[in-house]
Write a protein that binds this DNA or RNA. Structure first.
Length: 849
RNA sequence: GGGCGCGUAGCUCAGCGGUAGAGCGCUCGCUUCACACGCGAGAGGUCGCUGGUUCGAACCCAGCCGCGCCCACCA
């Protein structure tokens, strides 16, 4: 080692991520390791496309978790020698981005209409440049090994062409059509939104009962509604056809109060006989069910609420211009005046709200573009049923299939400016649908844009150059792995599977892992508006990216979990431990001059650590293959802290200081493999340590990932060593409880039957007595000789406690063995274990005297 | 209204048919020549409740009590 490097290693007693991380990351970028060539086949290559973050903001904890998982797998596969691509990009996020930019405008006292469409879009692009770059920087802070040279954006020119191709193709197939239909109108964004962007909340409203007089007779039909203002658009009253109470009225008419309109009384199965009076007012223009009923019966569709959320002229002079809430108040008052309001009671029900703007959804009939999904869904259902796309954890497969089997048409048009303009042009009655502008004069393009998810649905192949047959597409599609939050399983994952099969000829990925949601420390959602968010960048500043990555993986699970500072600290501790263990090894090991794997070692401790190392490699690899990140992280931690540092390094220290070549060889080898094994989870600290390793022949980021060497795994030896470790613990525990100060070395007569490893005595500070003596106590066969340092009082106390505990256990074991049912029915090895256990307890009790 | 999941040590979570585990926190002791972001030793659980299956249940089954999420067009 260069003297300068040695000096730095000697002096740096703590891993300092702030100093090292950006330097290390720059080294990776310089090496070009994240930018694969488009060679080989998708089958042999490994690729992942990042779930593109919205350009609306900054990296949050969900991205950090998601990114840590992807990077762990990507790095592992890259190290394993596969041509690996992790494609980075961002999503234009139509509504969300437009909303934040509009908010900024409002603060300047401006609005988009005054600016005009082109100027507004230019303004959003400025925003995009700013935030897109920020997101890229933040992924780099996390250590994400994305291909930063292949970065894509869902509004790139090439991407836009792919979107148009998809739209036109679906149109030509007859899946996409334009229709006047009831949509979820979001008054906040002044746009239609899809069913998936609607969130239902429990609300307590007032349920009003209104008497509708029947024409020509002295009877009323009482209907119940939570939205009396919509009565202005009523065009029928419905009853259940089986409801005898009203059988004679079907076909008759009511007179709509306030309005005076004559509306038919119809019979429809949808009406619930049990609810209220069993009569239902029908408002086809403003209620989803009523709309369906209206279409079934050919009812008139009247619209009284406009897209601005205010009453229109159809509502009548008294109400025009009022907000819905004001209109409700006015209508109720008018009904009261007329004496037709027969009841008011509180009523709790679920009410739709816009996921984006938070405003209450106004169901409206509107001219929109829709996409029929059945044909696209069928092969996507089959793909998941057959596990060609394998969903983990498995319960989400069912959820996906249930949803897909009930799939409904998708409203794909949005009344926004920021997004992919719908590739449809109109000229009088003519309609042109095409990938590029129509020939001729006078064409006007549809004003609307496509739902953001329409473009993200084609992300895995559009980012690789589709519709062209590009080298990237051939080398990296289909991708291998997708990790996602469950909330976008339908919104995004399902749609990618559908478009992948339809347009790219294959499923977009083999595996989908649905990860947990990290909640705030108090169990609430992490959310900016609640102020419960924890900023991953701040955590990186505090503890380092390795610590955060480890922490997130360790706390992740198949269920939702609360953010755990302790796990991040555990990661920080692990980085530091690795750093310091490496210092010990690298500063003291004698360099064999060339990279040599240890020969079959003579000493059991050497064979033991090599066995533990290979066992850990096998275990971690298997866990990562199963996407069990949390247990993988714990296994790494356990190996480094317990096996390597607490035991092996302590055992081997004297040999290391003596320049023992065998010990050095084992240590350098073990360190090399450990660094490579840990690298996918904690890339920075491992890369840095590797730069000091004598075997270094390039950066760790492309160092071969260790494959477990089965021959070195020796379960028998591990068990035997486990006993020696346990023995050491017993002796330490005994002396602690006997009040023996740590400095004191006790004398003891070792058990005669089999040799005890040297380290047991050394690490427990118990030395073999020169000559026999009269032991005052026996600990696992060791006869401890008297010493003035033993606190007899404490010892007696300890003995009696131990005895009580053992006796209780003995009673339990004996009870089991005394049970004929157990001895006869339990597997023989279980019975044998219990017998052994009984013997052990009896032996220890005998030792205690 | 359907569906899914969760209730295990003070906290956050593993374990999911054969002696209750981890990390943090807590107690005691250590400036032991890699690391105090450390080392050693401990204390601490009737595994939500009630039944059932089993030689044996935290783990399987049924019911109940709490909590969370997803889906759903009863005004």
């Amino acid at each position: 080692m260069e003297p300068e490097a040695r000096k730095k290693l000697e002096e740096t007693t703590r891993w300092d991520p702030a100093e090292a991380e950006s330097r290390i990351f720059a080294g990776w970028l310089d090496g070009g390791y994240f930018h694969p060539e488009a060679t080989g086949t998708a089958e042999e290559n490994y690729s992942v496309s990042i779930p593109p973050p919205n350009v609306t903001g900054v990296l949050h904890m969900g991205h950090a978790l998601n990114g840590s998982m992807q990077d762990a797998l990507v790095r592992m596969n890259r190290m394993a020698g596969r041509n690996t691509l992790w494609l980075l990009g961002t999503d234009h996020a139509g509504i969300a981005t437009q909303a934040v930019v509009e908010k900024g405008l409002r603060e300047e006292g401006r609005d988009r209409h005054e600016m005009g469409r082109d100027a507004f879009i230019e303004r959003v692009w400025e925003w995009k440049e700013l935030y897109g770059a920020r997101i890229r920087d933040q992924y780099q802070r996390l250590g994400a090994s994305c291909d930063y040279e292949r970065e894509r954006f869902t509004l790139d020119e090439g991407y836009a062409r792919a979107v148009r191709r998809v739209f036109v193709s679906l149109f030509e197939k007859g899946y996409i059509y334009r229709d006047n239909y009831m949509v979820n109108w979001d008054p906040g964004s002044r746009s239609a939104i899809s069913d998936l962007e609607v969130e239902n909340r429990e609300e307590t409203d007032t349920l009003y009962s209104i008497d509708y007089p029947v024409e020509g007779v002295d009877r009323v039909l009482t209907v119940a509604t939570v939205r009396p203002e919509t009565m202005l658009a009523d065009t029928a009253v419905a009853v259940n056809p089986a409801d005898e109470r009203y059988a004679d009225l079907v076909g008759q008419h009511c007179i709509l109060p306030l309005v005076g309109r004559r509306i038919p009384i119809i019979a429809d199965e949808h009406v619930d006989v049990e609810f209220g009076t069993g009569a239902l007012k029908i408002t086809p223009g403003h209620d989803v069910n009523d709309f369906e009923i209206g279409r079934r019966h050919g009812l008139e569709e009247i619209t009284v609420i406009g897209e601005d959320g205010r009453m229109n002229a159809e509502a009548g002079e008294a109400y025009e211009g009022l907000t819905v809430a004001e209109a409700q108040e006015a209508v109720v008052e008018a009904l009261r005046q007329e004496g037709v309001l027969s009841a008011e009671e509180p009523y709790t029900h679920s009410v739709p709200f816009s996921h984006r703007s938070g405003e209450r959804i106004e169901p409206l009939i509107s001219l929109q573009w829709f996409c029929r999904m059945d044909e696209l869904a069928a092969p996507a259902i089959e793909a998941v049923e057959q596990d060609r796309v394998k969903i983990t954890p498995e319960q989400w497969k069912r959820v996906y299939l249930d949803w897909m089997n009930e799939i409904r048409p998708w409203c794909v048009s949005r009344q926004l400016w920021w997004g992919h303009r719908i590739p449809v042009w109109y000229r009088g009655d003519e309609v042109y649908v095409g990938e590029s502008d129509p020939e001729g004069e006078g064409w006007v393009q549809d004003e609307d844009v496509l739902d953001t998810w329409f473009s993200s649905a084609i992300w895995p192949f559009a980012t690789l150059g589709w519709p062209d047959d590009t080298p990237d597409l051939r080398a990296f599609y289909p991708t291998d792995f997708l990790t996602t939050a469950r909330e976008i399983l339908f919104l995004w994952v399902a749609r990618m599977i559908m478009t992948g099969i339809e347009f790219a000829g294959d499923v977009p990925f083999d595996d989908v892992y649905v990860h947990s949601v990290i909640q705030a420390r108090d169990g609430r959602r992490m959310s900016k508006s609640l102020g419960t968010g924890i900023d991953p960048l701040e955590e990186i500043d505090r503890h380092g990216a390795d610590a955060l990555r480890f922490g997130l993986l360790a706390m992740s699970s198949t269920q939702d979990v609360r953010y755990s500072d302790a796990k991040v600290q555990q990661g920080r501790d692990l980085a530091n431990k690795l750093w310091n263990a490496s210092r010990l090894i690298l500063l003291n090991a004698s360099d064999p001059g060339e990279r040599v794997p240890p020969a079959e070692p003579a000493l059991p401790e050497d064979r033991w650590i090599l066995s533990r190392l290979e066992s850990t490699i096998a275990e971690v690899t298997e866990l990562l293959d199963r996407y069990d990140f949390s247990h993988a992280a714990q296994a790494l931690y356990g190996f480094v802290f317990a096996d390597l540092c607490d035991w092996y390094l302590e055992i081997v220290k004297p040999r290391l200081y003596d320049g023992d070549q065998a010990a050095s060889t084992v240590l350098l080898w073990t360190l090399e493999r450990t660094l490579a094994l840990v690298h996918p989870v904690m890339p920075f600290v491992t890369e840095e340590i590797w730069s000091y390793h004598p075997y270094r022949d390039g950066q760790l980021v492309i160092h071969p990932f260790p494959e477990a060497i089965g021959d070195r795994i020796d379960p028998g030896l591990e068990a035997e060593f486990g006993r020696a470790i346990e023995l050491t613990r017993q002796l330490r525990g005994w002396r602690d409880q006997a009040g023996v100060p740590p400095r004191v070395i006790l004398s003891a007569v070792p058990p005669g039957d089999e040799p005890v490893p040297e380290f047991v005595g050394r690490l427990s500070r118990v030395e073999q007595a020169e000559s026999g003596g009269d032991p005052i106590a026996t600990v696992s066969g060791f006869g401890i000789l008297a010493s003035g340092e033993i606190d007899e009082e404490a010892l007696r106390e300890r003995l009696s406690q131990r005895r009580t505990k053992l006796e209780a256990e003995l009673a339990k074991v004996a009870g089991k063995l005394g049970n004929a049912g157990f001895v006869e029915n339990a597997p023989p090895e279980v019975v044998a274990e219990e017998r052994e256990r009984e013997a052990e307890i009896r032996a220890e009790l005998a030792e205690l005297g």
